[in-house]
Design a protein around this nucleic acid. Structure first.
Length: 473
DNA sequence: ATAATATGTCATAGA
DNA sequence: GATCTATGACATATT
């Protein structure tokens, strides 16, 4: 490399242009030491050309490399381009420098693009606005994400609307179906259909399994209880009924076989706080579900269905009857003395307090806890699915933005490559002019193919014979 | 009849 | 340890 210095031509290029970033077209005062001092029209052209050349060198980020004054390290960033384009100034190139601009710029400089981005920003200040766009992994990306989060409120309302729509639709459909079944037949059909193959209930005690209530009659429960919702009564009558049931030998013996279980009495079945827990006897006769209504009409002596059902009745805006859910029917069957929404929604302390208000048997207690668990999990599942949808929508939105950004960057890259190709063509022309002038005015048979530009520590550029430079490498 | 979708439920993990 | 919440997986209902 040092031998290259010895063989350096008397062409010394002062890189003043480097101190004037962005001044590509004109006012850069550039000296070409070793050239003529006079300014012929040709020289003026040459000056202009050199100004452009200096801008090119600035574009390529000529920097003082290290203590080795002629190392080509500053050019390394151009290496991909050099290797393909043949515009090398520091690396030995077997190809000759093209004198014309016939090469397709985009294809030639494709690989050089990433390294060229920062100089391009300075070269064309107008491009700053383009490249200030959020870059993946950069700060701009987070800013973009933040902007997309503004999407959420309308999405939430949309999803709420979707949930309400589908829900009400499903209930209406059930109501229509119920019209075709009557009484216990319908209920038996429904419960058979709901025989809960999906219910492992392995975590629940056997007593808790409501299917035991409907399908298999546990020995500890009275027969009338097992008839379930078919004979729901008010609390008072229920207790009176149960007082009478206490005389039932079968029930009492079987029920007393469960230690710690006390059958509800009139006293302990009454809610302590009737305002809080809504005295059931005071509830008006509700609009019964069709099956229950048929049952009420068809079952002689079983005409008081309203009280329990009223607790489990879903609020509805129209006269369309809403069928009871499975848990509601189970609760009705086991005469759970409070509303399901309380079971599900009360805080745990209030829920436990509510349980203390009543003396529930094991089956009732297990059912109540299952209802609470399932109810909470149902809400959790709904929330989970809603969040999933929101995430999907959010990601789709983000994807759209990223695709738009990518298209924008692609356009910018193409534009940059075109500009760069023009500049490199001008540089090539400039080389040709320089060597042509050297031949004409100094009689030196220089050929553009025979020399390389090399940069010194002080920012000067030297033309070094290619073979000498090769020796120095 | 069948696929797609919605919903409920269970099991499980983590807070 | 009990409770709650989130979530995957599965079953069933609905479209």
């Amino acid at each position: 490399m040092c031998s290259a210095i010895n063989g350096v031509l008397p062409l010394r290029l002062s890189c003043e242009g480097l101190a004037n970033p962005g001044r590509l077209h004109g006012e850069v005062s550039t000296n070409v030491t070793g050239f003529r001092a006079q300014r012929s029209p040709q020289h003026l052209d040459m000056d202009l050309a050199w100004q452009e050349l200096m801008a090119i060198t600035e574009l390529q980020e000529f920097e003082v490399p290290n203590e080795n004054p002629f190392e080509a390290i500053p050019y390394l960033s151009m290496e991909p381009m050099v290797s393909q384009g043949g515009f090398g100034m520091s690396q030995p190139q077997p190809e000759s420098i093209p004198a014309t601009c016939d090469a397709h710029p985009a294809a030639v400089y494709e690989n050089a693009y990433p390294d060229m981005m920062p100089p391009y920003q300075r070269l064309n200040p107008h491009m700053d606005m383009h490249y200030s766009l959020p870059v993946p992994g950069g700060h701009g990306s987070s800013r973009m994400l933040t902007s997309t989060q503004a999407f959420h409120p309308p999405l939430m309302s949309l999803l709420e609307h979707m949930n309400m729509t589908t829900r009400s639709h499903g209930f209406a459909k059930d109501g229509v179906i119920n019209l075709h079944c009557t009484g216990q037949i319908k209920q038996a059909c429904t419960d058979d259909l709901e025989s809960d193959s999906g219910l492992s209930l392995g975590s629940s005690p056997p007593l808790a399994s409501p299917e035991n209530v409907v399908h298999g009659v546990p020995s500890y429960l009275p027969a009338d209880v097992m008839m379930g919702y078919a004979e729901s009564e008010s609390i008072g009558e229920q207790c009176r009924m149960r007082q009478s049931l206490l005389g039932s030998v079968d029930y009492h013996q079987s029920y007393s076989s469960f230690p710690g279980t006390s059958f509800p009495t009139t006293a302990n079945m009454q809610p302590v706080n009737q305002q809080t827990y809504q005295p059931i006897a005071s509830v008006k006769q509700p609009v019964l579900p069709t099956a229950l209504h048929d049952l009420q009409l068809n079952s002689s002596g079983l005409t008081r269905l309203g009280s329990y059902q009223s607790m489990y009745q879903k609020p509805k805006s129209s006269s369309v009857s809403v069928p009871l859910s499975r848990d509601e029917r189970r609760a009705l069957a086991l005469k759970i003395p409070f509303a399901l929404d309380k079971i599900v929604n009360l805080p745990v302390d209030d829920f436990n307090e509510l349980l203390t208000q009543f003396t529930l048997n094991d089956a009732q207690l297990a059912l109540v806890r299952d209802i609470r668990r399932r109810g909470k999990n149902k809400v959790a599942a709904q929330n989970c699915r809603k969040r999933k949808l929101e995430n999907i929508v959010h990601l789709e939105n983000e994807l759209g933005q990223l695709q738009a950004q990518r298209e924008h960057l692609t356009r910018e890259r193409l534009e940059f490559q075109q500009n760069l190709a023009v500049i490199k063509c001008r540089l090539s022309d400039l080389y040709t002019q320089v060597f042509s002038q050297l031949r004409d005015e100094e009689g030196h048979p220089f050929s553009v193919d025979e020399y390389l530009l090399q940069l010194t520590n002080d920012g000067n550029v030297y033309l070094v014979p290619r073979n000498t430079a090769l020796e120095g490498e």
